[in-house]
């Protein structure tokens, strides 16, 4: 069962947070943001606040409020979630004059994201498409995982008993990596060069990550095959393993 507040956090801090990766990986998206310098703030009442910053051909995500050319407000987590499903519009408190960016470029960027994350199955036969699909899925899953741990009622209970330590999740042969920092009651995505990890979870390749993340190969069998490698302090990993299936429920 999904919780609307948790879903809003996942939608913003897990899914939209990965728009910068779309802009970095997809040529079409990269071209669309060239020369566009502006910031969009998303503010959800009783929910998350974050900004997408477009600057010098690069997109980045920042949690919290700040100087923004466009401010989008949402009356509730449900309102934001409906917007993410294309069933509602935001309330624009600032930036009406820049609405063109929202309706054109930004919409196209989110469509590119959807193109990769909810793909036409035929496209997955193409290795380069599959690579981007896998990397984006990986980032969305592990960023969303932290939000589930902090905001889903069951996730919060699981996190209460979490052990302290950082976990690195990575895809070998690439620079794709997420570092999660856990402590009792807390899980967050941290900078990749933060403290030494106590635990590592590594997919052997993009193709193996694709098989696992798409559900074509189950996690346990993948470990047996050596397609997923784990080492270190397993109680941290076990917390992540308990939360990961909940992520699927929200992103399905």
């Amino acid at each position: 069962m999904t919780n609307q507040t948790a879903k809003a956090y996942i939608n913003l801090n897990g899914v939209l947070r990965c728009l910068p990766y779309v802009c970095a990986l997809d040529q079409d998206a990269k071209e669309r943001i060239q020369g566009r310098n502006l910031t969009i703030q998303f503010k959800v009442r009783n929910g998350p606040i974050a900004r997408l910053v477009f600057e010098n051909g690069v997109c980045r995500f920042e949690k919290g409020k700040g100087k923004s050319q466009i401010k989008l407000n949402f009356s509730s987590p449900e309102h934001f979630n409906r917007m993410m499903e294309g069933r509602a519009n935001p309330s624009i408190s600032k930036g009406l004059l820049k609405i063109g960016f929202l309706t054109k470029e930004f919409m196209q960027l989110t469509k590119r994201m959807e193109y990769y994350l909810k793909p036409n199955p035929a496209l997955l036969a193409d290795a380069s498409f599959r690579r981007i699909n896998t990397i984006l899925t990986f980032y969305v899953a592990f960023h969303s995982l932290a939000e589930v741990g902090m905001h889903d009622p069951v996730g919060v209970q699981v996190m209460k008993h979490a052990k302290r330590g950082a976990l690195i999740a990575a895809i070998e042969q690439t620079d794709v990596m997420v570092r999660l920092k856990l402590s009792p009651g807390n899980i967050e995505v941290a900078a990749v060069d933060d403290d030494s990890p106590v635990c590592k979870l590594r997919f052997a390749s993009v193709d193996k990550a694709y098989e696992v993340l798409s559900g074509k190969l189950d996690f346990l069998t993948a470990i047996g095959f050596g397609d997923v490698r784990m080492e270190g302090f397993m109680p941290v990993m076990q917390t992540v393993e308990h939360i990961l299936p909940m992520v699927n429920t929200y992103l399905a």
Binding site: L220, T221, G224, F225, G226, E231
Partner: peptide, 28 residues
């Protein structure tokens, strides 16, 4: 044998004796 097992047994070897349990690191 693990390749064979994985086709017909969930996880190849499940539970505490399976390679995913955490007591066999690295599983190799």
């Amino acid at each position: 044998l693990f390749q064979r097992a994985a086709k017909v047994i969930p996880g190849g070897v499940y539970g505490h004796q399976g390679p995913a349990n955490g007591c066999f690191i690295p599983k190799e």
